[in-house]
């Protein structure tokens, strides 16, 4: 170990500067991709194609996970609440848990794993095979042609997925609580309707989902665009997408919850 003290301090400083520089790069990247209008006549077609691969293809995992999470919530809630003789409250417990926390958060985590990693790998491979620089060569801005539609597709589809997740979860909870465990269906739904406020719960959940959509898509697309153009670099970028996106979602969720509720 020959590294002197000053070398180590310099290394530490450089890695700190690298992080700040990456943050700045990602901000400029986001601005350049979203600012201004797309000059492509088929911008809408590009967006539809991305909405399909980002949103529609994520439907299955979202619906299945939502169903099972709702069912588990109802089962756990029933077991705990029936100890107090208030198993009628299971509906409001399932609905509030899903709308306020689990809906946006789990959707964002699944979205990062399902769609985010795919976005990173796809863009990273485009970069590695020099498709992005070829686009630039023929005078097409890859930020506008490749990046922007993917960003918008993420922003649009994740909140929709979160809403679908919540509805499927609440329906799954109703299936377990009402059909299997015998909670009276009137009290399941009416307790839920009394407890859930549209502005406080549904809209705040939607805002959460929008924020998560923004963060997850941004991280995923930027990691792909910024990766080392090697196979190893792509794999590292994909891992970073999932790790960073999950951490960002979970920590942002705490801040948003503290602000909202």
């Amino acid at each position: 170990m020959k590294a002197s003290m000053t070398d180590r301090v310099a290394l530490l400083g450089r890695s700190g500067l690298d992080i700040v520089a990456a943050l700045g790069r990602s901000g400029i990247f986001l601005f350049q991709a979203l600012a201004g209008r797309s000059r492509f006549g088929n911008a809408f077609g590009l967006l539809v194609r991305q909405l399909y691969s980002v949103g529609v293809l994520s439907m299955v995992i979202i619906v299945v996970s939502g169903l099972f999470i709702g069912m588990v919530l109802a089962l756990q809630g029933y077991n705990i609440l029936s100890g107090y003789g208030s198993e009628q409250a299971v509906g409001q417990m399932v609905a509030l848990t899903l709308l306020r926390e689990l809906g946006p958060v789990v959707t964002a985590l699944l979205f990062a794993g399902r769609a985010g990693s795919a976005l990173t790998a796809e863009i990273g491979l485009m970069k590695a095979t020099e498709q992005l620089s070829s686009l630039e060569m023929i005078g097409v801005d890859p930020l506008k042609y490749v990046i922007a539609p993917r960003l918008w597709a993420g922003f649009i589809s994740m909140p929709l997925l979160a809403m679908i997740f919540c509805v499927v979860g609440i329906w799954g909870g109703a299936m377990v609580a009402v059909d299997w465990l015998g909670v009276y269906s009137g009290s399941y739904w009416s307790n839920m309707q009394n407890a859930v406020q549209f502005g406080d719960d549904v809209l705040n959940g939607l805002i959460k989902a929008l924020v998560f959509a923004f963060v997850v898509t941004w991280i995923a697309v930027f990691q792909g665009y910024d990766c080392d153009p090697t196979s190893e670099g792509i794999s590292r970028a994909t891992t970073r997408t999932v790790v960073y996106a999950s951490l960002a979602v979970l920590s942002l969720d705490f801040i948003l919850t503290a602000l909202m509720f």
């Binding site: 399909y52 909140p159 929709l160 809403m163 679908i164 309707q193 549904v202």
Partner: peptide, 25 residues
């Protein structure tokens, strides 16, 4: 492609409507 995406967006908006009417009353 356009049709499936349209169905997806409609499903999302419908879910929001369900949450508004059925869940939050």
């Amino acid at each position: 492609l356009e049709l499936t995406v349209g169905v997806f967006i409609l499903a999302g908006l419908l879910a929001l409507a369900v949450l508004a009417v059925r869940v939050s009353g």
